[in-house]
Design a binder for these strands. Structure first.
Lengths: 263, 263
DNA sequence: GGCAGCAAAAGATATCATCTTTATGATTTT
DNA sequence: AAAATCATAAAGATGATATCTTTTGCTGCC
């Protein structure tokens, strides 16, 4: 039977690394796998690596850095979670530098905001900022396809006026469509992340009257965007989101009161 | 010698999981470790887990989910990269739900935007949205301490009018201070991440004349915020960022021309 | 088009190294 | 002699390695 010595070699290298980096680096960045992650990120920023480049298999990476496969694996898990690489199984597989994936990132932001414990008011003010700019840019940049998409969603919402869940979903899609019509990917990402946090799954206080009023505003918004009235679209969106904010904050207070009553 | 059978049990469970989730879920989410990640995220959104909660050690997690330590480890690497958990070594160590970490998030965004290849114009339009709202809210919510901080930074910038690097840094701080004066953490996070991507380390076209003009605008901004003129602050900030955008886009075009000339 | 084979990740198990906290024990001080 | 302080050992956790088996995608062959 072999000795199965757990590689004093790499252990010594790790110790050396920790000595080099001054022991305490900041946020536990003195592990072998994090070193690999840092290397890849630096190569990215230095334009030595770009989207689509082949990074190698787990074994390759391990061999290149002189570490075990598990370490390479840890590094790849981290890079994968960061959306930097995509990993494929099977022959011809391995890790490749990914194309940017804004959606993934938007979800990560949503989690962060949740952990930070921001209030509904804070989120909706930020949402107002993003959506107003999106509406203004949509009026300037929207294509015929975008206009068609907006009209299609308006018709869809109109057919679901009596279906609270369906109507909520459709409205949500409408707002997203405006963001996409701005043709600004940064705004789209910011919007998606905020929506993930703030948009309620079900909407208890959505009466038919309110639904109809919202639909009217949406129609007017689509009209202003088609007429390329950027300032008008911004103003209307501003009022619209302010209204939503007021409703959401009121709901929140109501929920709090109910909590206090029951406990 | 023991059989060392590679756990047909978990393998079978994995196959079952893949059958349950319909094989192709979206973004390779059919691994045991990703299932653990999904569980934790759901628990987070359902408020069953919050900042500071103890998640267990690698062994705990493995035992709870009936998998090997490697799988639990993979899941923890992912959760760590997403900024959801913090992991400590040694006795009493293990994984804990992290506090939100905006910096981590800002870096992740920088990488994503880099990979996606968004333009400077897109970033600066988003920045305009965020900063205008920040200015408006700052006028409404700023405290006396915020006002003092803004005045302090104005004096600092004035003393560095001849030092391009120092002046740039000071200006950057001023914009951040306005975001913080809004007392909206969402806006602050969004602003920091955008600033990291867009703000140039050095500013080659910053002439003394331009510096002085920028300082004038900053002074006026601080004045409007102190006077609690939200609409005015928003309007002025809008113009200001538009100017920055125009300058940045022009610089970008110039850089491109230079590239073409040299190659 | 189906089938065999191969390459790669996914997963499991065992073992060693290292780090961090905690408790214990020795030494010094009051 | 009691209390305080410092050194040290033990325990519990991650970090890393090695070596397996199984599942999954390709690719080329028929």
């Amino acid at each position: 039977m072999t000795t199965l010595s757990a590689s004093p070699l790499a252990q010594a290298r790790l110790a050396q690394l920790r000595r080099d980096t001054g022991f305490i680096v900041l946020g536990r960045s003195a592990s072998l796998s994090s070193q690999i992650v840092a290397d890849v990120r630096e190569a990215l920023f230095a334009k030595q690596l770009t989207s689509g480049d082949f990074l190698g298999t787990e074994k390759d990476l391990a061999a290149r850095h002189g570490v075990s496969r598990i370490v390479a694996r840890d590094a790849l898990r981290t890079l994968e979670a960061l959306g930097i690489v995509e990993i494929r199984m099977g022959k011809g597989g391995g890790a490749r530098i990914a194309r940017g994936n804004p959606r993934l990132f938007a979800e990560a932001l949503a989690v962060q905001l949740d952990l930070t414990g921001v209030s509904a008011a804070e989120i909706l003010d930020a949402q107002r900022a993003v959506e107003c700019m999106a509406a203004e840019l949509a009026a300037e940049n929207a294509t015929a396809a975008d206009h068609a998409r907006l009209r299609e969603l308006l018709a869809d919402a109109e057919s679901k006026l009596d279906d609270v869940a369906g109507y909520t979903l459709s409205s949500r899609e409408f707002h997203l469509a405006i963001a996409e019509a701005s043709h600004n990917r940064v705004l789209v990402v910011q919007f998606i992340s905020l929506q993930n946090v703030s948009w309620p799954a079900r909407n208890p206080t959505l009466t038919p009257k309110v639904s109809r009023r919202i639909l009217e505003v949406h129609k007017e918004l689509a009209g202003l965007i088609e007429m390329r009235d950027g300032a008008g679209a911004r103003r209307l969106m501003d009022d619209h989101v302010k209204m939503i904010r007021a409703r959401r904050v009121a709901e929140h207070l109501q929920a709090k009161r109910n909590d206090q009553r029951c406990c």
